[in-house]
Design a protein around this nucleic acid. Structure first.
Lengths: 271, 271
DNA sequence: CGAAGAATTGATTCCGGTCAACTCTGGTGG
DNA sequence: CCACCAGAGTTGACCGGAATCAATTCTTCG
Protein backbone atom coordinates (compact mmCIF):
# COMPACT_ATOMS: atom_id res chain seq x y z
CA UNK A 1 0.00 0.00 0.00
CA UNK A 2 1.89 3.00 -1.26
CA UNK A 3 1.36 6.46 0.10
CA UNK A 4 0.06 7.34 -3.34
CA UNK A 5 -2.66 4.81 -2.86
CA UNK A 6 -3.36 6.04 0.58
CA UNK A 7 -3.72 9.58 -0.55
CA UNK A 8 -6.23 8.62 -3.18
CA UNK A 9 -8.58 6.61 -1.08
CA UNK A 10 -11.40 9.02 -1.53
CA UNK A 11 -10.84 9.09 -5.20
CA UNK A 12 -12.83 7.08 -7.58
CA UNK A 13 -11.15 7.29 -10.91
CA UNK A 14 -8.76 10.18 -10.65
CA UNK A 15 -9.80 12.19 -13.65
CA UNK A 16 -7.14 14.84 -13.81
CA UNK A 17 -5.46 17.16 -11.36
CA UNK A 18 -6.71 20.24 -13.12
CA UNK A 19 -5.84 23.17 -10.91
CA UNK A 20 -8.29 25.55 -12.56
CA UNK A 21 -11.44 24.81 -14.48
CA UNK A 22 -12.94 26.72 -17.34
CA UNK A 23 -16.24 28.31 -16.76
CA UNK A 24 -17.67 27.43 -20.12
CA UNK A 25 -19.55 24.21 -20.27
CA UNK A 26 -20.32 24.34 -16.59
CA UNK A 27 -23.97 25.04 -17.07
CA UNK A 28 -25.41 21.58 -16.72
CA UNK A 29 -24.96 18.76 -14.27
CA UNK A 30 -22.38 16.27 -15.44
CA UNK A 31 -23.84 13.12 -16.89
CA UNK A 32 -22.76 9.70 -15.86
CA UNK A 33 -19.78 8.25 -17.59
CA UNK A 34 -20.40 5.26 -19.81
CA UNK A 35 -19.23 2.89 -17.12
CA UNK A 36 -21.41 4.44 -14.49
CA UNK A 37 -24.36 4.42 -16.81
CA UNK A 38 -23.98 0.71 -17.35
CA UNK A 39 -23.72 0.11 -13.65
CA UNK A 40 -26.90 1.96 -12.94
CA UNK A 41 -28.73 0.50 -15.87
CA UNK A 42 -28.25 -2.89 -14.35
CA UNK A 43 -30.27 -1.91 -11.32
CA UNK A 44 -32.91 0.22 -12.99
CA UNK A 45 -36.01 -0.48 -14.98
CA UNK A 46 -37.53 1.43 -17.82
CA UNK A 47 -40.87 3.08 -17.28
CA UNK A 48 -43.30 4.26 -19.91
CA UNK A 49 -42.20 7.44 -21.62
CA UNK A 50 -43.43 10.83 -20.52
CA UNK A 51 -45.20 13.06 -22.94
CA UNK A 52 -44.38 16.74 -23.21
CA UNK A 53 -45.37 18.72 -20.08
CA UNK A 54 -46.04 15.53 -18.14
CA UNK A 55 -44.48 15.55 -14.69
CA UNK A 56 -42.22 12.90 -13.27
CA UNK A 57 -42.93 14.07 -9.74
CA UNK A 58 -44.19 17.22 -8.10
CA UNK A 59 -42.62 19.57 -5.61
CA UNK A 60 -43.17 18.35 -2.07
CA UNK A 61 -43.83 14.78 -3.15
CA UNK A 62 -42.01 12.06 -1.23
CA UNK A 63 -38.96 10.58 -2.89
CA UNK A 64 -39.82 7.12 -4.18
CA UNK A 65 -37.14 6.45 -6.72
CA UNK A 66 -34.27 8.05 -8.49
CA UNK A 67 -34.33 8.26 -12.25
CA UNK A 68 -31.88 8.33 -15.09
CA UNK A 69 -32.79 10.13 -18.27
CA UNK A 70 -32.60 7.88 -21.32
CA UNK A 71 -33.61 10.28 -24.00
CA UNK A 72 -35.47 13.54 -24.13
CA UNK A 73 -35.14 16.19 -21.45
CA UNK A 74 -36.77 17.53 -18.33
CA UNK A 75 -36.82 20.72 -16.36
CA UNK A 76 -36.97 21.01 -12.62
CA UNK A 77 -39.12 23.88 -11.43
CA UNK A 78 -38.96 25.15 -7.91
CA UNK A 79 -41.83 27.37 -6.84
CA UNK A 80 -40.99 29.66 -3.95
CA UNK A 81 -43.25 31.10 -1.31
CA UNK A 82 -44.04 34.12 -3.43
CA UNK A 83 -45.26 31.66 -6.04
CA UNK A 84 -42.50 32.57 -8.40
CA UNK A 85 -41.16 29.72 -10.49
CA UNK A 86 -37.45 29.07 -10.76
CA UNK A 87 -35.96 26.54 -13.10
CA UNK A 88 -33.21 24.91 -11.08
CA UNK A 89 -32.08 22.28 -13.54
CA UNK A 90 -32.42 20.90 -16.99
CA UNK A 91 -31.88 17.16 -17.12
CA UNK A 92 -30.48 15.67 -20.29
CA UNK A 93 -29.78 12.06 -21.23
CA UNK A 94 -27.42 10.30 -18.84
CA UNK A 95 -28.22 12.47 -15.87
CA UNK A 96 -29.54 11.35 -12.51
CA UNK A 97 -32.77 12.95 -11.34
CA UNK A 98 -33.74 13.19 -7.68
CA UNK A 99 -30.45 13.46 -5.84
CA UNK A 100 -31.45 16.69 -4.18
CA UNK A 101 -34.41 14.98 -2.51
CA UNK A 102 -32.34 12.55 -0.51
CA UNK A 103 -31.64 14.83 2.41
CA UNK A 104 -35.25 15.62 3.26
CA UNK A 105 -36.94 12.72 1.53
CA UNK A 106 -39.09 15.11 -0.46
CA UNK A 107 -38.59 16.57 -3.87
CA UNK A 108 -37.67 20.24 -3.72
CA UNK A 109 -39.09 20.90 -7.17
CA UNK A 110 -41.54 19.70 -9.78
CA UNK A 111 -39.86 17.91 -12.64
CA UNK A 112 -41.54 17.76 -16.01
CA UNK A 113 -40.72 16.66 -19.51
CA UNK A 114 -39.85 19.26 -22.10
CA UNK A 115 -40.53 16.80 -24.88
CA UNK A 116 -41.29 13.11 -25.14
CA UNK A 117 -38.87 11.68 -22.66
CA UNK A 118 -38.04 8.26 -21.38
CA UNK A 119 -36.41 7.59 -18.06
CA UNK A 120 -35.25 4.58 -16.09
CA UNK A 121 -36.31 4.12 -12.54
CA UNK A 122 -33.79 3.08 -9.92
CA UNK A 123 -35.84 1.27 -7.33
CA UNK A 124 -34.80 1.84 -3.76
CA UNK A 125 -34.49 -1.86 -3.06
CA UNK A 126 -32.13 -2.29 -5.96
CA UNK A 127 -30.07 0.69 -5.02
CA UNK A 128 -29.90 -0.44 -1.45
CA UNK A 129 -28.66 -3.84 -2.44
CA UNK A 130 -26.24 -2.30 -4.88
CA UNK A 131 -24.87 0.15 -2.34
CA UNK A 132 -24.41 -2.54 0.23
CA UNK A 133 -22.36 -4.59 -2.15
CA UNK A 134 -20.39 -1.67 -3.37
CA UNK A 135 -19.66 -0.50 0.14
CA UNK A 136 -18.38 -3.91 1.09
CA UNK A 137 -16.03 -3.87 -1.86
CA UNK A 138 -14.82 -0.34 -1.98
CA UNK A 139 -15.43 1.05 1.44
CA UNK A 140 -18.38 3.28 0.91
CA UNK A 141 -16.76 5.26 -1.79
CA UNK A 142 -19.03 4.19 -4.58
CA UNK A 143 -20.05 5.81 -7.78
CA UNK A 144 -23.19 7.12 -6.22
CA UNK A 145 -21.27 9.37 -3.92
CA UNK A 146 -19.08 10.38 -6.79
CA UNK A 147 -22.04 11.42 -8.89
CA UNK A 148 -23.28 13.49 -6.04
CA UNK A 149 -19.97 15.17 -5.41
CA UNK A 150 -19.72 16.03 -9.06
CA UNK A 151 -23.18 17.52 -9.06
CA UNK A 152 -22.22 19.61 -6.06
CA UNK A 153 -19.10 20.83 -7.74
CA UNK A 154 -20.94 21.63 -10.94
CA UNK A 155 -23.47 23.60 -9.03
CA UNK A 156 -20.76 25.68 -7.40
CA UNK A 157 -19.23 26.40 -10.75
CA UNK A 158 -22.66 27.36 -12.01
CA UNK A 159 -23.02 29.93 -9.27
CA UNK A 160 -19.73 31.44 -10.25
CA UNK A 161 -20.72 31.44 -13.87
CA UNK A 162 -23.94 33.25 -13.33
CA UNK A 163 -22.72 35.59 -10.71
CA UNK A 164 -20.23 37.97 -12.14
CA UNK A 165 -20.76 37.30 -15.78
CA UNK A 166 -22.59 39.38 -18.30
CA UNK A 167 -25.61 38.10 -20.13
CA UNK A 168 -23.71 37.25 -23.30
CA UNK A 169 -21.21 35.10 -21.42
CA UNK A 170 -24.00 33.29 -19.64
CA UNK A 171 -25.88 32.46 -22.77
CA UNK A 172 -22.77 31.45 -24.67
CA UNK A 173 -21.77 29.13 -21.83
CA UNK A 174 -25.19 27.62 -21.74
CA UNK A 175 -25.20 26.92 -25.45
CA UNK A 176 -21.73 25.44 -25.28
CA UNK A 177 -22.78 23.19 -22.44
CA UNK A 178 -25.64 21.94 -24.55
CA UNK A 179 -23.37 21.46 -27.52
CA UNK A 180 -20.94 19.44 -25.44
CA UNK A 181 -23.73 17.30 -24.08
CA UNK A 182 -25.01 16.54 -27.53
CA UNK A 183 -21.54 15.58 -28.67
CA UNK A 184 -21.21 13.23 -25.71
CA UNK A 185 -24.47 11.61 -26.67
CA UNK A 186 -23.25 11.03 -30.17
CA UNK A 187 -25.23 13.80 -31.80
CA UNK A 188 -23.83 16.71 -33.71
CA UNK A 189 -22.42 19.38 -31.42
CA UNK A 190 -23.03 21.94 -34.14
CA UNK A 191 -26.61 21.40 -35.02
CA UNK A 192 -29.27 20.72 -32.45
CA UNK A 193 -32.71 21.59 -31.27
CA UNK A 194 -33.45 23.41 -28.03
CA UNK A 195 -36.13 21.55 -26.15
CA UNK A 196 -36.73 24.50 -23.84
CA UNK A 197 -38.33 27.82 -24.62
CA UNK A 198 -36.54 31.14 -24.59
CA UNK A 199 -38.24 32.01 -21.37
CA UNK A 200 -37.09 28.76 -19.78
CA UNK A 201 -33.54 29.64 -20.76
CA UNK A 202 -33.95 33.14 -19.43
CA UNK A 203 -35.36 31.91 -16.17
CA UNK A 204 -32.57 29.39 -15.76
CA UNK A 205 -29.85 31.92 -16.50
CA UNK A 206 -31.41 34.78 -14.61
CA UNK A 207 -32.09 36.83 -17.73
CA UNK A 208 -35.23 38.36 -19.19
CA UNK A 209 -36.72 36.64 -22.23
CA UNK A 210 -36.12 39.75 -24.27
CA UNK A 211 -32.44 39.63 -23.42
CA UNK A 212 -32.13 36.02 -24.54
CA UNK A 213 -33.85 36.86 -27.77
CA UNK A 214 -31.70 39.91 -28.42
CA UNK A 215 -28.51 38.01 -27.64
CA UNK A 216 -29.37 35.19 -30.01
CA UNK A 217 -29.96 37.80 -32.67
CA UNK A 218 -26.66 39.41 -31.86
CA UNK A 219 -24.76 36.11 -31.91
CA UNK A 220 -26.20 35.56 -35.34
CA UNK A 221 -25.07 39.00 -36.53
CA UNK A 222 -21.61 38.15 -35.30
CA UNK A 223 -21.62 34.92 -37.27
CA UNK A 224 -21.31 32.78 -34.16
CA UNK A 225 -24.40 30.75 -34.88
CA UNK A 226 -27.64 30.51 -36.79
CA UNK A 227 -30.88 30.29 -34.87
CA UNK A 228 -34.13 29.53 -36.55
CA UNK A 229 -36.79 29.07 -33.93
CA UNK A 230 -35.48 26.38 -31.65
CA UNK A 231 -33.05 24.99 -34.18
CA UNK A 232 -29.49 26.04 -33.46
CA UNK A 233 -26.51 25.73 -35.72
CA UNK A 234 -23.15 26.65 -34.28
CA UNK A 235 -21.05 28.34 -36.96
CA UNK A 236 -18.05 29.48 -34.94
CA UNK A 237 -17.34 27.26 -31.98
CA UNK A 238 -14.06 28.97 -31.14
CA UNK A 239 -15.74 32.34 -31.17
CA UNK A 240 -18.42 31.12 -28.82
CA UNK A 241 -15.83 29.63 -26.50
CA UNK A 242 -13.81 32.83 -26.49
CA UNK A 243 -16.97 34.66 -25.50
CA UNK A 244 -17.86 32.18 -22.79
CA UNK A 245 -14.40 32.26 -21.26
CA UNK A 246 -14.54 36.02 -21.09
CA UNK A 247 -11.70 36.00 -23.57
CA UNK A 248 -13.59 38.09 -26.10
CA UNK A 249 -12.01 41.44 -26.85
CA UNK A 250 -14.83 43.63 -25.59
CA UNK A 251 -18.57 43.79 -25.19
CA UNK A 252 -20.27 42.10 -28.09
CA UNK A 253 -22.11 45.31 -28.86
CA UNK A 254 -18.92 47.03 -29.92
CA UNK A 255 -17.56 44.28 -32.11
CA UNK A 256 -17.96 45.83 -35.51
CA UNK A 257 -21.50 45.18 -36.57
CA UNK A 258 -23.91 48.03 -36.18
CA UNK A 259 -25.33 48.23 -32.68
CA UNK A 260 -29.09 48.38 -32.23
CA UNK A 261 -30.50 51.86 -31.94
CA UNK A 262 -31.27 51.52 -28.26
CA UNK A 263 -27.58 51.23 -27.51
CA UNK A 264 -26.40 54.26 -29.43
CA UNK A 265 -25.52 57.20 -27.28
CA UNK A 266 -28.23 59.80 -27.03
CA UNK A 267 -25.70 62.54 -27.71
CA UNK A 268 -26.37 64.60 -24.67
CA UNK A 269 -24.42 67.80 -23.98
CA UNK A 270 -21.59 67.08 -21.60
CA UNK A 271 -21.95 70.32 -19.67
CA UNK B 1 -43.45 -3.22 5.81
CA UNK B 2 -46.04 -0.58 5.07
CA UNK B 3 -46.09 1.35 1.86
CA UNK B 4 -45.33 4.40 3.94
CA UNK B 5 -42.13 2.76 5.02
CA UNK B 6 -41.35 1.71 1.54
CA UNK B 7 -41.81 5.16 0.22
CA UNK B 8 -39.39 6.56 2.70
CA UNK B 9 -36.51 4.24 2.13
CA UNK B 10 -34.31 6.94 0.78
CA UNK B 11 -35.15 9.12 3.68
CA UNK B 12 -32.97 9.49 6.65
CA UNK B 13 -34.90 11.31 9.28
CA UNK B 14 -37.86 12.81 7.48
CA UNK B 15 -37.50 16.40 8.49
CA UNK B 16 -40.71 17.91 7.20
CA UNK B 17 -42.71 17.75 4.00
CA UNK B 18 -42.31 21.43 3.31
CA UNK B 19 -43.70 22.05 -0.15
CA UNK B 20 -41.94 25.37 -0.58
CA UNK B 21 -38.79 26.65 1.02
CA UNK B 22 -37.89 30.17 1.87
CA UNK B 23 -34.98 31.66 0.11
CA UNK B 24 -33.73 33.41 3.18
CA UNK B 25 -31.29 31.45 5.20
CA UNK B 26 -30.19 29.53 2.15
CA UNK B 27 -26.85 31.19 1.95
CA UNK B 28 -24.69 28.71 3.72
CA UNK B 29 -24.26 24.97 3.59
CA UNK B 30 -26.37 23.25 6.20
CA UNK B 31 -24.41 22.14 9.20
CA UNK B 32 -24.62 18.67 10.60
CA UNK B 33 -27.35 17.97 13.08
CA UNK B 34 -26.28 17.24 16.63
CA UNK B 35 -26.65 13.53 16.05
CA UNK B 36 -24.64 13.56 12.88
CA UNK B 37 -21.99 15.65 14.51
CA UNK B 38 -21.56 13.10 17.24
CA UNK B 39 -21.39 10.31 14.74
CA UNK B 40 -18.64 11.98 12.81
CA UNK B 41 -16.79 13.10 15.88
CA UNK B 42 -16.38 9.48 16.80
CA UNK B 43 -14.37 8.83 13.67
CA UNK B 44 -12.43 12.07 13.49
CA UNK B 45 -9.45 13.49 15.26
CA UNK B 46 -8.67 17.03 16.21
CA UNK B 47 -5.72 18.69 14.55
CA UNK B 48 -3.87 21.75 15.73
CA UNK B 49 -5.81 24.95 15.18
CA UNK B 50 -5.24 27.11 12.15
CA UNK B 51 -4.24 30.71 12.56
CA UNK B 52 -5.87 33.46 10.55
CA UNK B 53 -5.08 33.25 6.83
CA UNK B 54 -3.53 29.82 7.21
CA UNK B 55 -4.74 27.35 4.58
CA UNK B 56 -6.22 23.93 5.24
CA UNK B 57 -5.48 22.83 1.70
CA UNK B 58 -4.80 24.49 -1.63
CA UNK B 59 -6.63 24.36 -4.91
CA UNK B 60 -5.53 21.38 -6.98
CA UNK B 61 -4.19 19.49 -3.98
CA UNK B 62 -5.20 15.85 -3.68
CA UNK B 63 -7.98 15.06 -1.26
CA UNK B 64 -6.47 13.44 1.82
CA UNK B 65 -9.16 13.87 4.42
CA UNK B 66 -12.45 15.53 5.02
CA UNK B 67 -12.77 18.01 7.84
CA UNK B 68 -15.42 19.26 10.20
CA UNK B 69 -15.21 22.78 11.52
CA UNK B 70 -15.17 22.88 15.30
CA UNK B 71 -14.97 26.57 15.87
CA UNK B 72 -13.91 29.55 13.84
CA UNK B 73 -14.57 29.85 10.13
CA UNK B 74 -12.99 29.31 6.74
CA UNK B 75 -13.47 30.53 3.22
CA UNK B 76 -13.04 28.48 0.09
CA UNK B 77 -11.49 30.40 -2.76
CA UNK B 78 -11.61 29.16 -6.30
CA UNK B 79 -9.24 30.81 -8.72
CA UNK B 80 -10.34 30.57 -12.35
CA UNK B 81 -8.25 30.54 -15.51
CA UNK B 82 -8.32 34.31 -15.74
CA UNK B 83 -6.79 34.34 -12.25
CA UNK B 84 -9.88 35.86 -10.76
CA UNK B 85 -10.71 34.70 -7.26
CA UNK B 86 -14.20 33.55 -6.37
CA UNK B 87 -15.29 32.72 -2.87
CA UNK B 88 -17.42 29.61 -3.27
CA UNK B 89 -18.16 28.90 0.37
CA UNK B 90 -17.83 30.03 3.89
CA UNK B 91 -17.54 27.17 6.35
CA UNK B 92 -18.87 27.67 9.85
CA UNK B 93 -18.82 25.36 12.87
CA UNK B 94 -20.50 22.01 12.23
CA UNK B 95 -19.95 22.02 8.51
CA UNK B 96 -18.12 19.42 6.47
CA UNK B 97 -15.24 20.63 4.33
CA UNK B 98 -14.04 18.80 1.26
CA UNK B 99 -17.14 17.13 -0.13
CA UNK B 100 -16.73 18.80 -3.50
CA UNK B 101 -13.36 17.15 -3.96
CA UNK B 102 -14.65 13.61 -3.87
CA UNK B 103 -15.59 13.37 -7.52
CA UNK B 104 -12.19 14.27 -8.93
CA UNK B 105 -10.04 13.51 -5.92
CA UNK B 106 -8.65 17.02 -5.99
CA UNK B 107 -9.74 20.12 -4.15
CA UNK B 108 -11.42 22.60 -6.46
CA UNK B 109 -10.50 25.53 -4.27
CA UNK B 110 -8.09 26.78 -1.64
CA UNK B 111 -9.57 26.81 1.83
CA UNK B 112 -8.20 29.14 4.46
CA UNK B 113 -9.08 30.28 7.93
CA UNK B 114 -10.74 33.64 8.42
CA UNK B 115 -9.80 33.64 12.09
CA UNK B 116 -8.26 31.21 14.52
CA UNK B 117 -10.05 28.02 13.62
CA UNK B 118 -9.98 24.46 14.77
CA UNK B 119 -11.12 21.55 12.68
CA UNK B 120 -11.40 17.79 13.06
CA UNK B 121 -9.96 15.51 10.49
CA UNK B 122 -11.94 12.54 9.25
CA UNK B 123 -9.34 10.05 8.20
CA UNK B 124 -10.16 8.04 5.12
CA UNK B 125 -9.61 4.74 6.90
CA UNK B 126 -12.06 5.67 9.60
CA UNK B 127 -14.64 6.89 7.15
CA UNK B 128 -14.26 3.79 5.06
CA UNK B 129 -14.80 1.57 8.01
CA UNK B 130 -17.70 3.68 9.15
CA UNK B 131 -19.36 3.67 5.74
CA UNK B 132 -19.02 -0.05 5.43
CA UNK B 133 -20.74 -0.57 8.71
CA UNK B 134 -23.41 1.95 7.99
CA UNK B 135 -24.11 0.50 4.58
CA UNK B 136 -24.52 -2.94 6.03
CA UNK B 137 -27.02 -1.60 8.52
CA UNK B 138 -29.00 0.87 6.52
CA UNK B 139 -28.45 -0.07 2.94
CA UNK B 140 -26.10 2.60 1.75
CA UNK B 141 -28.32 5.42 2.78
CA UNK B 142 -26.10 6.82 5.44
CA UNK B 143 -25.71 10.24 6.85
CA UNK B 144 -22.83 10.95 4.57
CA UNK B 145 -25.02 10.81 1.52
CA UNK B 146 -27.58 12.87 3.31
CA UNK B 147 -25.11 15.60 4.08
CA UNK B 148 -24.13 15.69 0.47
CA UNK B 149 -27.68 15.84 -0.79
CA UNK B 150 -28.38 18.69 1.54
CA UNK B 151 -25.34 20.57 0.35
CA UNK B 152 -26.51 20.09 -3.22
CA UNK B 153 -29.93 21.39 -2.44
CA UNK B 154 -28.53 24.37 -0.58
CA UNK B 155 -26.34 25.17 -3.49
CA UNK B 156 -29.29 25.18 -5.85
CA UNK B 157 -31.18 27.52 -3.60
CA UNK B 158 -28.13 29.72 -3.49
CA UNK B 159 -28.09 29.97 -7.26
CA UNK B 160 -31.69 31.06 -7.22
CA UNK B 161 -30.98 33.61 -4.57
CA UNK B 162 -28.11 35.17 -6.42
CA UNK B 163 -29.72 34.98 -9.77
CA UNK B 164 -32.97 36.82 -9.63
CA UNK B 165 -32.64 38.76 -6.43
CA UNK B 166 -31.62 42.33 -5.92
CA UNK B 167 -28.59 43.27 -3.89
CA UNK B 168 -30.57 44.12 -0.77
CA UNK B 169 -32.32 40.75 -0.75
CA UNK B 170 -29.01 38.96 -1.19
CA UNK B 171 -27.33 40.72 1.66
CA UNK B 172 -30.32 40.38 3.97
CA UNK B 173 -30.47 36.65 3.21
CA UNK B 174 -26.79 36.29 3.90
CA UNK B 175 -27.02 38.03 7.25
CA UNK B 176 -30.04 35.98 8.22
CA UNK B 177 -28.23 32.80 7.33
CA UNK B 178 -25.39 33.83 9.59
CA UNK B 179 -27.79 34.76 12.35
CA UNK B 180 -29.48 31.37 12.10
CA UNK B 181 -26.17 29.60 12.22
CA UNK B 182 -25.11 31.44 15.32
CA UNK B 183 -28.37 30.61 17.01
CA UNK B 184 -27.88 26.95 16.16
CA UNK B 185 -24.46 27.08 17.73
CA UNK B 186 -25.87 28.51 20.91
CA UNK B 187 -24.74 32.05 20.34
CA UNK B 188 -26.95 35.09 20.10
CA UNK B 189 -28.66 35.36 16.73
CA UNK B 190 -28.92 39.11 17.25
CA UNK B 191 -25.41 40.08 18.06
CA UNK B 192 -22.41 38.62 16.31
CA UNK B 193 -19.15 39.36 14.65
CA UNK B 194 -18.49 38.91 10.93
CA UNK B 195 -15.28 37.01 10.46
CA UNK B 196 -15.13 37.94 6.79
CA UNK B 197 -14.37 41.31 5.26
CA UNK B 198 -16.85 43.39 3.30
CA UNK B 199 -15.07 42.47 0.12
CA UNK B 200 -15.33 38.76 0.95
CA UNK B 201 -19.04 39.19 1.39
CA UNK B 202 -19.30 41.12 -1.84
CA UNK B 203 -17.34 38.52 -3.73
CA UNK B 204 -19.46 35.71 -2.34
CA UNK B 205 -22.73 37.43 -3.15
CA UNK B 206 -21.65 38.82 -6.49
CA UNK B 207 -21.77 42.44 -5.34
CA UNK B 208 -19.21 45.23 -5.33
CA UNK B 209 -17.69 46.13 -1.98
CA UNK B 210 -19.20 49.57 -2.27
CA UNK B 211 -22.64 48.09 -2.63
CA UNK B 212 -22.24 45.98 0.49
CA UNK B 213 -21.11 49.01 2.39
CA UNK B 214 -23.96 51.17 1.13
CA UNK B 215 -26.52 48.50 1.89
CA UNK B 216 -25.31 48.05 5.43
CA UNK B 217 -25.62 51.77 5.87
CA UNK B 218 -29.10 51.69 4.41
CA UNK B 219 -30.18 48.78 6.62
CA UNK B 220 -29.02 50.83 9.54
CA UNK B 221 -31.02 53.86 8.42
CA UNK B 222 -34.08 51.64 8.19
CA UNK B 223 -33.55 50.44 11.72
CA UNK B 224 -33.03 46.84 10.65
CA UNK B 225 -29.64 46.49 12.27
CA UNK B 226 -26.67 48.26 13.73
CA UNK B 227 -23.27 47.68 12.18
CA UNK B 228 -20.10 48.92 13.79
CA UNK B 229 -17.17 47.61 11.85
CA UNK B 230 -17.57 43.86 11.83
CA UNK B 231 -19.90 43.80 14.81
CA UNK B 232 -23.51 43.30 13.78
CA UNK B 233 -26.58 43.76 15.93
CA UNK B 234 -29.88 42.74 14.42
CA UNK B 235 -32.58 45.16 15.59
CA UNK B 236 -35.52 44.05 13.47
CA UNK B 237 -35.41 40.40 12.59
CA UNK B 238 -38.87 40.38 11.05
CA UNK B 239 -38.02 43.35 8.91
CA UNK B 240 -34.89 41.63 7.66
CA UNK B 241 -36.83 38.48 6.91
CA UNK B 242 -39.49 40.39 5.03
CA UNK B 243 -36.74 41.91 2.95
CA UNK B 244 -35.02 38.60 2.31
CA UNK B 245 -38.25 36.93 1.27
CA UNK B 246 -38.88 39.66 -1.23
CA UNK B 247 -42.03 40.52 0.68
CA UNK B 248 -40.86 44.02 1.44
CA UNK B 249 -43.21 46.72 0.11
CA UNK B 250 -40.82 48.18 -2.45
CA UNK B 251 -37.19 48.94 -3.08
CA UNK B 252 -35.48 49.86 0.15
CA UNK B 253 -34.50 53.20 -1.31
CA UNK B 254 -38.10 54.34 -1.39
CA UNK B 255 -39.02 53.29 2.11
CA UNK B 256 -39.32 56.66 3.75
CA UNK B 257 -35.82 57.72 4.71
CA UNK B 258 -34.14 60.18 2.40
CA UNK B 259 -32.41 58.51 -0.55
CA UNK B 260 -28.74 59.26 -1.16
CA UNK B 261 -28.05 62.06 -3.58
CA UNK B 262 -26.78 59.76 -6.29
CA UNK B 263 -30.26 58.33 -6.61
CA UNK B 264 -32.02 61.58 -7.13
CA UNK B 265 -32.79 62.41 -10.72
CA UNK B 266 -30.27 64.67 -12.38
CA UNK B 267 -33.02 66.72 -13.99
CA UNK B 268 -31.85 66.53 -17.55
CA UNK B 269 -33.85 67.92 -20.46
CA UNK B 270 -35.99 65.09 -21.80
CA UNK B 271 -35.89 65.93 -25.46
C1' DC C 1 -59.59 29.74 -38.79
C1' DG C 2 -58.81 31.93 -34.60
C1' DA C 3 -56.89 32.12 -30.10
C1' DA C 4 -53.04 31.58 -26.96
C1' DG C 5 -48.59 31.37 -26.28
C1' DA C 6 -43.70 32.19 -28.05
C1' DA C 7 -40.53 35.25 -30.00
C1' DT C 8 -38.83 39.56 -31.74
C1' DT C 9 -38.04 44.46 -31.64
C1' DG C 10 -38.09 49.18 -29.84
C1' DA C 11 -38.02 52.83 -26.14
C1' DT C 12 -37.14 53.90 -21.54
C1' DT C 13 -35.76 53.27 -16.77
C1' DC C 14 -32.97 52.07 -13.02
C1' DC C 15 -29.94 49.07 -10.26
C1' DG C 16 -25.59 48.35 -9.26
C1' DG C 17 -20.74 48.50 -11.10
C1' DT C 18 -16.80 51.52 -11.69
C1' DC C 19 -13.82 55.22 -10.69
C1' DA C 20 -12.20 58.38 -7.43
C1' DA C 21 -11.44 60.62 -3.13
C1' DC C 22 -11.44 60.21 1.47
C1' DT C 23 -11.58 58.29 6.37
C1' DC C 24 -10.91 54.88 9.70
C1' DT C 25 -8.53 51.05 11.76
C1' DG C 26 -4.95 48.25 13.31
C1' DG C 27 -0.27 46.94 13.17
C1' DT C 28 4.79 48.11 12.98
C1' DG C 29 8.92 50.16 13.91
C1' DG C 30 11.69 54.17 15.07
C1' DC D 1 4.38 56.80 22.46
C1' DC D 2 3.38 58.35 18.31
C1' DA D 3 4.24 58.61 13.28
C1' DC D 4 3.43 56.12 9.57
C1' DC D 5 1.40 53.10 6.41
C1' DA D 6 -1.43 49.57 4.29
C1' DG D 7 -5.57 47.63 4.04
C1' DA D 8 -10.48 48.02 5.08
C1' DG D 9 -14.41 50.67 4.79
C1' DT D 10 -17.24 54.67 3.44
C1' DT D 11 -19.15 58.07 0.39
C1' DG D 12 -20.06 60.55 -3.95
C1' DA D 13 -20.59 61.05 -9.06
C1' DC D 14 -21.38 58.84 -13.13
C1' DC D 15 -22.48 55.42 -16.54
C1' DG D 16 -23.77 51.18 -18.72
C1' DG D 17 -26.09 46.71 -19.00
C1' DA D 18 -30.08 44.55 -18.60
C1' DA D 19 -34.90 44.81 -16.78
C1' DT D 20 -39.23 46.64 -17.87
C1' DC D 21 -42.94 48.26 -20.56
C1' DA D 22 -45.16 48.12 -24.91
C1' DA D 23 -46.27 46.84 -29.44
C1' DT D 24 -46.08 43.61 -33.11
C1' DT D 25 -45.20 39.30 -35.52
C1' DC D 26 -44.59 34.42 -35.67
C1' DT D 27 -46.01 29.58 -34.16
C1' DT D 28 -48.56 26.11 -32.64
C1' DC D 29 -52.49 23.66 -32.00
C1' DG D 30 -57.45 23.00 -30.74
Amino acid sequence: MTSQYKASRFMALPERPTPAYRLSGMCLPAPLSVGELETFSAISRQISPLRKRQTLFAQGEALKSLYIVRCGSLKQVYRDITDEAHITQFYLPGEVVGLDAISTGFHPGTTQALETTSVCEILPEALEEFSRKEAAEKGGNGCFLRVMSRALHQERMMVRLLLNRTSDVRLASFLLALSTRFRQQGYSPFCFRLSMSRSDIGNYLGLAVETVSRLLGRFQDLGLLTAKGREIRVDDLDGLMALADGRARQSIWHAGIVPPSSCRLAGMPAH
